[in-house]
Amino acid sequence: MANQTVGHKALDLIRRTYSIFVVLAAWEIVSHSGWVSPRLTPGIEKIAVEFWGLVTSGDLLFHGRITLQRAFIGFGLAIFGGIALGTLMARIRWFDILFEPLFSFGYPVPKISLYPVFIFVFGFGDLSKIMLIFLECLYPITVHTYYGMKSAERVLVWASRNMGANSQQLFWRVLVPSAAPTIFSGLRIAVPVALIVTIITEIIGESKGLGYIVSFSAAQFEYGRSLAAMFSIGVVGFVIDRLLIALRKHIIFWQKDSMPIV
């Protein structure tokens, strides 16, 4: 029985991850096929060697720390700002009238194109990057918070009012728990956005951070090293996402058995 459980778990793991191995196999085939220059598509073994080089030289830790610092500060500010703004928009009508069009109109606009403006306002250092990360992450968090708050079941609201709940109790005991799953969806969407924006700003003009490693290595024709840095970014994003899922399971404990895809 125990063996069957282990077997099932192993099968489940393969089922969840086999696509990664398919992609890696395809990459290896293309890399060794001669269809594309092997310099541009180095083999996985070369990328692995370069990755290990980044780890042992201390570059991964040094530049990774800088990248994560920027990403987390911007993301953290967006969490507070986005949840607050989304809540106010959901609860106060004139807030909704004032801000909802800005978010509807501005959501699809690539805010990264404002980076030159941010540079001139905040300088080339960390602040311009953090502010852009904040702005990009603000949108999904605000929108998800707004719709989360709005989507609380009316039956629950009526029931709590009938039981004598005041506005504060209604908010914390009904609206927030109702909105929590949707808010977490917004956070899960915002995390990769934070990393992407951080990397792009570091690629555009920087001499520190994982994005700098990606662009500088490519400039040196060391595409293996560049891809190893990209792999590191992927690993970091994956770990943060899994941590968010674990946090979600803990906070929204009543939904343990019905995890949404996002």
Partner: peptide, 11 residues
């Protein structure tokens, strides 16, 4: 020049 070399390497 870097972008030129990338295009060159890509054939």
């Amino acid at each position: 020049a870097n972008e030129r070399f990338v295009a060159y390497q890509a054939g």
